[in-house]
Structure formats: C-alpha cells, structure tokens
Design a protein around this nucleic acid. Structure first.
Length: 592
DNA sequence: GCCGTTTTCGGCCCGACTGTTTTCAGTCG
C-alpha cells in the first residue's frame, strides 16, 4: 500500500469523525498523522516492518496499529464502520466554504441533506434560510460555493497527477512488448490543474498493453477501448488514457497527445504551408506509420518529436510552452530562447522554520538547500500578528537573527539570509516597524487576513507595502488557493505597475496549490520590467523540492534566467537587495 | 489521538470575522 493511500485513509477518518463531532484534538492527531505519512520519503510499509515508523512524530501506539491493519488487510475497520454509517456526499457538503462539521450535521438532521445536489435543491427551494442560525445570505453563499465546486469538479492538482502518471507509466513500461512510454497531455505541459492523465507508448502490438492497463489493480473501470487506445477510471477517480503507437508513429502520437489542441492546430497549419501533412493517427490497422510528415523523398520518417519540429524548421518547443500563444514564432529563430531551468536556481528566498509554523529547524532547511546545490536561503518566518502560525515577536525575531549570524560564521560557500514574511495588516501597514525591517536581508510582505475586502482596499494595502522602502518581495501576490479559494480582489495591473516603479520583486510561489503569480501575470510583470523570484514558501524539507512547479510557471510565462533574481550569485543578489556582502555585522537596525 | 527532564494526566489553537442574533455559534486562517 502506498503512503498516499494510507495518508488518505486517515484524512477521511478525520473528516468523518469531525462530522460526528468527535474530540477536536483526536481529529487533529489523525490529520497530523496523515500529513506526517504523506511527508515521508520512504515507503510506510517498509518503515513499519523495520520498526522505524513508531519514531515518526505524530504516530503513536493507536495510529501505528491502524497502519498495521491497513498494511495487513488493506482496510481499516473503524473507517469502514464510519463509511457505512454516513453517506459519502456529506463530506462534500462539509467541505463547502462556510460550512463546517456543525452546519453539515445540522443540515443533515434538519433537512436530511446527504449530498451537494440535495443541498442545492434545498437552497433553491429556500428551505435553508428557514433554519435557526441561517439566513438569506448563508443560503446564497451556499449556492455560490456549490457553483464554484462544480466548476472545478474533476480537476486535480499537478503533484497528484504526476504521481498517478508516474505510477501507471512505470507499470506499462514493464509490460512485455513495450518499447517506451511517456507522459503526455496537460501533465507533460505542467498545467496548473488537469482533468486526466494521458500516456503514449510505443509497441508493435498494442493489445498486451491495453489488456494490462485494463487489468491494472488500481483501475476501477474501463471507460472506452479502441484498437490502440484505452481510457480507464482509476482508483483515484482520475481518468487515464493510454495510446499505443507503432514504433514509426511514436513521435507524432506523443506530439499530438501532448497538445495543446491549439499548438497542434498551429503545427498542422505550418506543416500545410510547407507542403507537409501532419495527420491524425487514427485507430485501426494500417494506420501506424502513416502518421506522416512524408514528402521529403528518401528521407526517413521522423521518429521523435524533435525530428518533427526540425522538419518544420523549428527548434523543439518545450512542452510547457505548447499553448498556441506564439511559441512557434519564438522557436523559429536562429537560436532557441534560453528559458529558466531548475538548475539555474541558486537559492530560495521564502522559507519557514520551526521558529514559526515550519516543521524543521533552520539547520535542517539549510542542509536540504545545500543538498539542492543552492548557495543561499532566506529564513522568512511569519510576523507577530499571525498568531495561528506562531508568528515571531520582535524579541524572538531578533534572537533568530542573532542565531543566523552565528550560524553564518561557520558556513562556508553558503549564506543564510535573515528575513521575515511580514504580514500586510488588515488596515494597511506592516506588522514590523521600518527600523526592524531595515536590518534584514529579505523582507517578504504578504497578505494573510481580510481576504474579503473590496478591490480598492486590498489593492491599497498591497500598494502601501510596495511603497515601503524596506520591502523586497511581495509574497503569493493574489492569495489564491487552487480549487479552494479564489484570488482576493486585487488590481494586479496597478500592483505590477507600482512594483516596476519601486523596483520591487514579485514572487512566483511554487507551492502547487498556489502557483501565484500565475503564468499570465508573471509574463505581464516581466514585460512591464518587474523582476520575479521563484520561491517555495517551504514549511518542511520536502516542500523545498517543489521548486520545479514554480520554475514551470516561469517557463510557461516565457521567463529567462535573467528575469528571475534567485538565479543570481550571492554577491549580485546582495547588491540588488542593497546589502553588503561581508558575513555578520550587517544587521544594522536600531535593535541589533 | 499524541506527547512528556514542567507531566503517564492534562495540555494541545487562538483571535477575528460573519451572519445571525440581541449575546453568540460557527468558521477560518
């Protein structure tokens, strides 16, 4: 059993117990265990067998026993009981913004609500507003939330999609007859969210591969099947489509299956102008290899994507850029553009530690950053107002910075930058006074409160932060949480314009549920002369490794290394930040 | 539920906001 499945089981257990009104701390313990399991780097099964699982914080006697049960039987009795007891739809109701366990329970008791559809009907019939403690506003809010949930239904975040794609691809790779297999579709293009996983394989005979996938243990049902294509619904509720191409048609099949549809259409048009024909590879015998770019007499059929691009007079277009937004022109020049790559990143300027709500110590985060090949990392814990995140008081902040200066004296070839993620307060202004901010290397200013303010107010808050001379970076500028929370009302064009004017850096937050700024605004910002930074906002070691998600956003925004400040070497970065290079002693604030 | 040179029992996550009330319950970050 995979870590993810075990983690999910505990999450579901926690959700159902919450609906039942079980003790808050017990629920939190299950959630913590779920997170801990998801964050493990080794397979839980192995750790369980070796006896090392008991040492993981958050996993005690009881949870360990439940994990043992899951590993041995594939089931958890307690969870099964709860699943029998409550209809599955109640969890969706409880997940609605504004609806928690109490209200979900209340709606269930009063109106017999067991699903979103039933809740929607009740709200439309104005039955919700009649309940004690609810009114017209709540009812309308419920209808709006249901609509939002509907619009994103079936879409999943990239990390899960990549995990599914990787697992199924590995499985197909091992099927006898498979020559090669690749991930295609939106996953390969690094889209923010996807609604399916697409794979392309090369084999002489598609049959064994299609059969294998149809019988794969994580496949719930076969949705469609053709001669060389199969679409299945997986255990995760995500459709997976596998297309098998004959060896001669692999490249073109992969190209088409990667998309986007618009990119493919433009390629076809370009091919037509050059007297080629990019055909669909169709189902059915005889179609393999017909897939064409044929008419260069004597030339071999292009086997790989790259060959097809070259035949069309283009540099191979990286998958992230294949959106039909002008990339063909970009890659038609004398030399291909040099886009940002993960290996260009020399440090992370937004990282949390266990001084606030991070899970790991400064030294652990630094060690991991070193392992990634970074030359610097900024420790930017939360500021004092964010009490839920154990925001640092002035005293603790200064203590932390003293510690960092000491640590830096021992570090060679690496620099820990002092910093803060300072709250942009509800009524404007920052959570630390200027003279404190002045003494730090990196000041990330972010909004964590008052999300529902109107656009004018919110934009004013952010502009005020940009105008503060000690702020270096605006963190996760729009505050969106993919699939959970819309961006707050913000006039981003004014923000970008102000950032350009004041020389402030805008963040591309790599957290896969944020990706904030998104590719469109990142590109706009760059075009307006704003520098960007790709940060992880990591709260634990593993999340330091999420940098490729942010880099993918940057690439989809066509950013080059020089557009992104954390590709700079330390001296150049410090110069940009207006800081001196020498180690220690540069913490010049009044409070040092 | 987990955890512990403050404890094997009693802490763990608190303050603000919202919509509903007319003093508060529920939700959220």
């Amino acid at each position: 059993m995979q870590n993810m499945e075990i983690s999910w089981a505990f999450r579901e257990l926690a959700d159902l117990l919450e609906f039942e009104g079980e003790d808050f701390f017990k629920i939190r313990a299950y959630r913590r265990a779920a997170r801990a399991i998801a964050g493990l780097e080794e397979p839980v099964e192995e750790m369980y067998r070796r006896g090392t699982l008991a040492g993981v914080p958050g996993i005690g006697k009881n949870i360990l026993a439940k994990i043992g049960e899951l590993i041995a039987t594939g089931e958890m009795k307690k969870l099964q009981e709860l699943r029998r007891k409550w209809p599955p739809g109640i969890l969706e109701v409880m997940a609605l913004p504004g609806i928690g366990p109490k209200r979900a329970r209340f709606l269930h008791e009063q109106l017999g609500i067991t699903s979103l559809a039933e809740l929607e009907e009740a709200a439309r019939e104005k039955k919700v507003r009649a309940l004690r403690g609810m009114g017209v506003k709540t009812e309308q809010e419920i209808l709006r939330s249901i609509e939002l949930v509907r619009s994103r239904r079936g879409r999943i975040l990239l990390p899960l999609a990549r995990e599914i794609a990787g697992e199924v691809a590995t499985f197909i790779q091992d099927v006898p007859g498979t020559r090669k297999v690749a991930v295609a579709g939106g996953v390969r293009r690094w889209r923010e969210t996807v609604d399916e996983v697409r794979l392309v394989a090369a084999a002489e005979d598609p049959e064994p591969l299609l059969n294998a996938l149809a019988g794969y243990r994580r496949v719930r049902e076969v949705l469609e099947r053709g001669e060389n294509r199969i679409r299945v619904l997986t255990w995760w509720g995500v459709p997976v489509e596998l297309e098998v191409a004959g060896p001669g048609a692999y490249g073109i099949t992969l190209l088409r299956a990667t998309g986007s549809a618009e990119h493919w259409r433009q390629l076809q048009a370009l091919a037509a102008r050059r007297g080629f024909c990019l055909d669909e590879v169709r189902d059915g015998p005889g179609s393999e290899g017909v897939a064409s770019v044929p008419p260069v007499p004597g030339a071999p059929l292009p086997q790989e994507e790259e060959d097809i691009y070259r035949r069309l007079g283009l540099w191979p277009v990286p998958p992230e850029l294949r959106e039909g937004r002008g990339e063909l022109e970009l890659f038609a020049g004398e030399s291909p553009p040099r886009l940002l790559e993960v290996r260009d990143i020399k440090g992370d300027l937004h990282v949390h530690s266990d001084w606030s709500d991070g899970a790991n110590s400064i030294l652990q985060m630094v060690q991991r950053a070193r392992e990634r090949g970074y030359r610097y990392v900024a420790i930017t814990d939360h500021s004092r107002s964010l009490t839920v995140a154990r925001g640092l008081s002035l005293e603790r902040l200064q203590e932390q910075h003293r510690l960092i200066r000491e640590l830096n004296e021992k570090e060679k070839d690496f620099r820990i930058l002092t910093g803060t993620e300072v709250d942009i307060l509800v009524r404007g202004g920052l959570d630390f006074p200027d003279e404190v901010l002045a003494g730090m290397d990196v000041v990330v200013a972010s909004v964590h409160s008052g999300f529902r303010q109107d656009e004018e107010t919110m934009t004013g808050r952010v502009l005020q932060a940009i105008e503060n001379e000690y702020v270096t970076i605006i963190g996760h500028p729009t505050g969106r949480l993919l699939g959970e929370r819309e961006a707050y009302a913000l006039d981003l064009e004014r923000v970008i314009e102000a950032a350009a004017r004041h020389g402030k850096i805008l963040e591309i937050n790599s957290s896969p549920d944020r990706l904030d700024l998104n590719e469109h605004y990142a590109r706009l910002a760059r075009d307006c002369g704003v520098r960007l930074v790709v940060n992880t906002d990591a709260h634990d070691l593993r999340r330091l490794d999420e940098i490729p998600y942010g880099v993918a956003v940057a690439r989809r925004a066509w950013l080059r290394p020089e557009d992104v400040v954390n590709t700079l070497d330390l001296p150049d970065l410090l110069e940009l930040l207006g800081k001196k290079l020498e180690v220690g002693g540069y913490y010049g604030g009044k409070n040092s």
